[in-house]
Design a binder for these strands. Structure first.
Lengths: 362, 362
DNA sequence: TCCACTTTGGCAACACTGTTGCTTAAGTGC
DNA sequence: GCACTTAAGCAACAGTGTTGCCAAAGTGGA
């Protein structure tokens, strides 16, 4: 349930109890998708009594979040009335603010993209101008949605940054960005009636891409101008206490190897980008694979997503290269799924805004 | 709160609500230790109303888990009545079943060791004989405790093993151990009225050593005949979906380096043990530090514990060596605490048995 | 066509949770 | 001595999931 807030979490009262169960039912209905789920199945999955499920779904129906989805087949008695998520009843917006481009999407409660928008962006114009552009993109996408149906806005930006405070960190090449409260800046521009705004690293949004199977542990590796990673453990984005988790580019893979801009030697990033610069993408994929295999072994990762422009330029090379290393290094154990991710950072940002509805922090 | 059971966790009802709040209050009182805590402070920490705290502490007092601890200083009004954990009211037993030695402890609810026992052990005698020895050690330690005060028994053994099922995996040198249900074997020998028995990897027990600050992320590195790790994320042991997390020995630190027994090349273990074999403990510490720094950066780790016989032979060399690497590699960020752990695996195993009382899985 | 059976799902009463409103106890400080 | 502050319990309350019961809506055999 995780009603954590302090170091030990928070106490729970009746509203919190109800909120937990509501979110749980919504999450199960979301996973079931268009097929829907009967009340009896929900009772079995939640381990609540059928009567409790009836009360809960009654509430959710009254709020318009859940709707009937016809009748199921009979199993010898009255056929069950199927319920499904009223996907279009609420929306979320996700924005990927990259160095030279802005991509924004509006998604429904299933995470399906309803509307897209993208345009140029220029970090050099300064953080205030970028906040303007982000707010403008959100407004454009929300004009077509019913008022009040927007649950949240997620903004993904290059890290590092402070997720809790919503403040940017040192963005390479743009020193004036450090310390800029982008989350608050966007929220101010959207007005006081706007839903909550979240700010997260692009790699964290990348690992949160909506998918039916949110459970388990996932790793997203982003190879572009730099090398970064996002982690999803037990279905939730893992950020660490100081939003610093997911540092992958400066994992040392070759002790006393070539010097890196970070001051270290033999970092994954310097090795990988070096191979890319030499045009040796196979070697870059192998290095990426070795780094991924370290994380896979350490954290029992189920799925590895690869993204970023370099990967996008030759997805096959990278997925097969990484998969080969993982197969060699997982001794008998299950080999994680490896796939190249379409640029889904904006979708992931929207997913982070949607997450609280389903009882997840992110 | 984490009343997880299925992939999405479980539904919550009133008993679960009460259990969560009871566990939370007990955890806070445990952290406060002998100083105790007033009802008002508990209310602030739990975000419950003072009246709710009075009801909760009333229940816990009736069960004997909590007791008065005198009066606090007045802050201008009636002085608060302090409460503290009745540490001696319940106990847990932890057993470290190592290849040639058995160490067992009985601890109170604060995790303080009340009684110790250790003796020889011989894995070669077979798993049944070892289960006998473990059960005998538990019986010996529990004879002196009041009946019914035992909350649980934790058994730590060399990994890999299946934590959920309580079944051993491949123990190097003892092929007949694979698949042996040690947890059930011990439970059978303790009888039907005995409290729950847990089985976990020694490295997981090592990272769960009782300490006031359970929150945050910790890493335990064990350097003995092999190299292993235990992870504690957000205060809970991280085992992964298949109990496979914490693989550290075969993290590749030197691409295409010296061949390892696992079939890979340049693994942390082969590099580290190689340096140890050459008598170069400083180099071993440096390698350990580089591996630790990778994990620290990836997971935003706060504390690094070092253990195992090799570390025990020269704790200063390893702590300073590891700390030096961490200082060099954390660029401006906070440097995690580094300490050599006394052999606390048995205490950690007891802690895992105690954990459910405080609302943690482990 | 009828009827026993199974399964679904809602109504009403219930037990029990934390919350609210109020009162009493027990200190401090002018 | 008295106003004030803080702690903590009693009683009534709102609202949760649970239990017991019953009506609705199917299946399947006589």
């Amino acid at each position: 349930m995780d009603w954590r807030s302090g170091s030990h979490g928070s106490g729970a009262n009746l509203p919190a109890l109800r909120g937990h169960n509501d979110a749980l039912v919504l999450a199960l209905l979301r996973e079931a998708g268009f097929e829907g789920l009967g009340r009896t199945e929900l009772a079995a999955l939640t381990r609540l009594t059928p009567q409790a499920v009836s009360k809960i779904t009654g509430r959710l129906r009254a709020e318009g979040l859940v709707a009937d989805a016809g009748r199921g087949a009979s199993t010898g008695g009255k056929p069950r009335t199927l319920l499904q998520l009223a996907a279009g009843a609420r929306h979320a917006v996700g924005v990927h603010a990259d160095r030279d481009e802005l991509r924004a999407v509006r998604v429904d409660m299933l995470g399906t993209v309803v509307e897209r928008f993208h345009g140029p962006l220029d970090f050099a114009a300064g953080p205030d101008a970028v906040a303007d552009e982000v707010a403008r993109a959100v407004d454009r996408l929300c004009g077509n949605a019913g008022a009040g149906s927007l649950l949240g806005v997620g903004v993904a930006a290059p890290g590092p940054l402070d997720w809790r405070a919503g403040v940017l960190g040192r963005v390479t090449g743009y020193p004036e960005w450090e310390g800029f409260p982008l989350r608050q800046a966007v929220a101010d521009r959207l007005g006081p009636d706007a839903p909550p705004v979240l700010l997260d690293k692009d790699t964290n949004a990348g690992v949160a891409v909506p998918g039916r199977r949110a459970a388990g542990n996932s790793l997203y590796l982003h190879l572009g101008t730099g090398l970064g990673a996002g982690l999803r453990l037990r279905g939730e984005v893992f950020r660490g206490e100081r939003s610093a988790a997911g540092e992958f580019g400066h994992q040392v893979l070759m002790l006393d190897g070539p010097p890196c801009r970070c001051g270290g030697r033999g970092c994954a990033e310097v090795l990988c980008l070096g191979a890319v610069a030499r045009g040796d993408l196979r070697e870059a994929a192998r290095i990426l694979g070795e780094g991924a295999a370290n994380v896979v072994a350490l954290l029992d990762v189920d799925r590895v997503w690869l993204g970023g422009r370099v990967v996008g330029s030759a997805p096959e090379v990278f997925t097969t290269g990484v998969r080969r290393v993982l197969e060699a290094r997982t001794l008998g154990g299950p080999v994680p799924e490896v796939a190249a991710s379409e640029d889904g950072v904006a979708e992931g940002a929207a997913e982070l805004a949607l997450a609280p509805l389903f009882g997840r922090v992110g």
